[in-house]
């Protein structure tokens, strides 16, 4: 659905986007993560044909961003970093303007559908200026979707929202994913990316990595199992260290943190061994690194290089 080929954007001497090459598949929620000033918004603007690339190219829904900008704009939806509503106009009027610009056939029907879906139908005649941040964001989301685009670009959709509003927006993004739309999600919120995205890209002017959150964790930290014991004794550790499947063992208080390749296969053996050695096992669980750990690790690696 989205293909970029060495996409580059320079502002004078500053390279905002450097040779970005990636592919976003149909129906995927693709997280685009990076620090402030990394070039995420610039990338979205390039892909929505708001600005033109310095070099390289990209295709959105098979359309070339250099030569088919008008068709791309017709076919994608964008939620900009700030809602950008006409504050003095009503919610319904805000949507009506964009529905007409996108040549939506059933303007009234679509307005009702999205305002009801987002829970602001009762406020449809209220000026947008009277809305809370969360309501404004919902209205901006409705505007991005009013023409039923197959590809939606969401730039920081939950930033500056309170937890409840952010939760509602996330739920809505989940619904969009279930409808099979392709979503390009720029976010700072790593937990959000972890929960919503099929794949993520870490970006800081250039692409650092792209993969599923699970694969990134595994690549960076391996898979770890934590075994809580009543008491850790040296003979337990020595016995486990002789097992070929185990890569590393750390002792933290009364816990063993075991690094292994295939916990699904190896865990039963490990547990059986411990039980046979007389260990009192209290809990067993997988140590799951947060996406924040992955992000920090990759950003630090990038900074040091």
């Amino acid at each position: 659905m989205i293909i970029t080929e060495n996409l580059t954007k320079k502002f004078a001497e500053n390279i905002a986007v450097n040779r970005l090459t990636l592919e976003v598949k149909k129906g995927e929620v693709f997280g685009f993560l990076g620090p402030n000033g990394a070039g995420k918004t610039t990338t979205v603007r390039l892909l929505t044909c708001l600005i033109s690339p310095t070099s390289g190219n990209a295709y959105v829904n098979g359309l070339n961003i250099k030569t088919q900008a008008h068709q791309i704009r017709q076919n994608v939806g964008i939620l900009t970093e700030t809602p950008g509503l006409y504050e003095n106009l009503s919610a319904a009027r805000n949507l009506e303007i964009f529905a007409q610009l996108y040549e939506v056939k059933d303007v009234k029907g679509q307005i009702e559908r999205y305002l009801r879906m987002l829970g602001i139908w009762d406020q449809r005649e209220d000026p947008a200026a009277t809305f809370s941040k969360g309501m404004k964001q919902k209205l901006a989301l409705a505007r991005a979707l009013i023409h039923e685009p197959k590809i939606v670009f969401l730039d920081e959709p939950t930033s500056a929202l309170d937890p409840e509003a952010a939760h509602l927006v996330r739920e809505f993004i989940t619904e969009l994913r279930q409808e099979g739309r392709t979503i390009f999600l720029c976010t700072h919120n790593l937990d959000e990316a972890d929960r919503l995205c099929n794949r993520i890209a870490l970006f800081k002017s250039q692409l650092l990595t792209t993969d599923t959150p699970a694969n990134l964790r595994e690549t960076l930290f391996g898979r770890k199992v934590v075994v809580h014991l009543r008491e850790v004794t040296p003979n337990l550790v020595q016995s486990l260290q002789t097992m070929a499947e185990i890569k590393n063992i750390k002792i933290v208080d009364n816990k063993l943190v075991i690094t292994l390749d295939n916990p699904e296969k190896t865990n039963p053996i490990v547990i059986r061994t411990l039980v046979n050695l007389g260990a009192d096992i209290q809990f067993v669980g997988e140590l799951r690194h947060s996406l924040e750990d992955v992000y920090m690790q990759l950003m630090n690696q990038h900074s040091s290089t």
Binding site: L50, R73, T80, G84, L85, Y86, A144
Partner: peptide
């Protein structure tokens, strides 16, 4: 100032 220009320019209008 309302930040409404970006969504407008992103729409299919010349």
């Amino acid at each position: 100032t309302q930040r409404s220009l970006e969504p407008l320019l992103a729409s299919p209008i010349t």
